[in-house]
């Protein structure tokens, strides 16, 4: 499903060069639930960004369903992100000016989908995460766990094959964290491929496979 070959990511400033990822080779199979662990600053989020086509690698190739996407142009990359990938972020990244429903609709805005069915799909996704009674609320009116559930609804509304979650439980207490993890596990059981960055060993144990990074290099 996702294949990374010889991935290298270098951040350059005028005075310093930082090697964030060094010769990463990975193959994520369809239906897998993979966790990525490692100390802060080891390149976990960078790796997830490269996988999710949010960032370009300095070297190496990224393949999605066997297609090399590294050289794709903005429009094609946007289409892939829109149709194949759903993102969940540690700090939720909801748009505070929009209602819960409008936030969840965002991925569908960039498909040729009319307003009515768009709303129906968004409501369905919110029902799946147990927030069907919060559609008209604004993010500021929700708890951390609720915000993350909205973010999950947004990630799954377009029915993507892959869900990339960057520390989805990082800002939540353990009870809320478990709730989110249960939802992710349910999504995986329903067929979604999930790659999750986490600091939490307990959460990582609930996934199929663990990848460990250290100083940008894959050690496990």
């Amino acid at each position: 499903m996702i294949t990374l070959q010889n991935i290298e990511k270098v951040y350059r400033t005028s005075t310093i060069e930082t090697l964030a990822l060094n010769n990463i080779n990975l193959d994520i199979k369809k239906g897998e639930f993979v966790s990525i662990m490692g100390p802060s600053g080891c390149g976990k989020s960078t790796l997830l960004n490269v996988m999710g086509l949010l960032d370009e690698p300095s070297k190496g190739t990224v393949q999605l369903d066997g297609q090399p996407v590294t050289q794709y142009r903005d429009k094609e990359l946007a289409r892939l992100r829109n149709q194949k990938i759903g993102f969940i972020f540690q700090s939720f990244h909801l748009i505070n000016d929009l209602t819960v429903l409008d936030n969840v609709e965002i991925p569908l805005l960039y498909r040729s989908q009319n307003g009515k069915p768009r709303q129906e799909y968004a409501k369905e996704a919110l029902t799946k995460v147990g927030l069907s009674n919060r559609v008209k609320h604004f993010p500021k009116q929700l708890s951390g766990g609720q915000k993350q559930r909205v973010a999950i609804a947004r990630a799954i509304v377009g029915n993507p094959d892959i869900i990339l979650a960057d520390e989805p439980t990082g800002n939540l207490d353990s009870a809320m964290g478990n709730e989110i993890m249960n939802i992710l596990q349910q999504l995986n059981d329903d067929g979604a491929t999930i790659v999750m960055v986490t600091h939490d060993e307990q959460m990582a144990k609930r996934t199929h496979r663990l990848i460990r990074l250290f100083d940008g290099t894959q050690v496990l």
């Binding site: 999710g52 949010l54 903005d74 429009k75 946007a78 289409r79 992100r81 829109n82 149709q83 993102f87 990244h93 909801l94 748009i95 965002i106 991925p107 805005l109 960039y110 498909r111 947004r154 377009g158």
Partner: peptide, 16 residues
Amino acid sequence: ASEIGIRKAFGAPVKT
């Protein structure tokens, strides 16, 4: 900027 990032992450092309 964050909103732009979100919209792009969920498939908004530059033109849009």
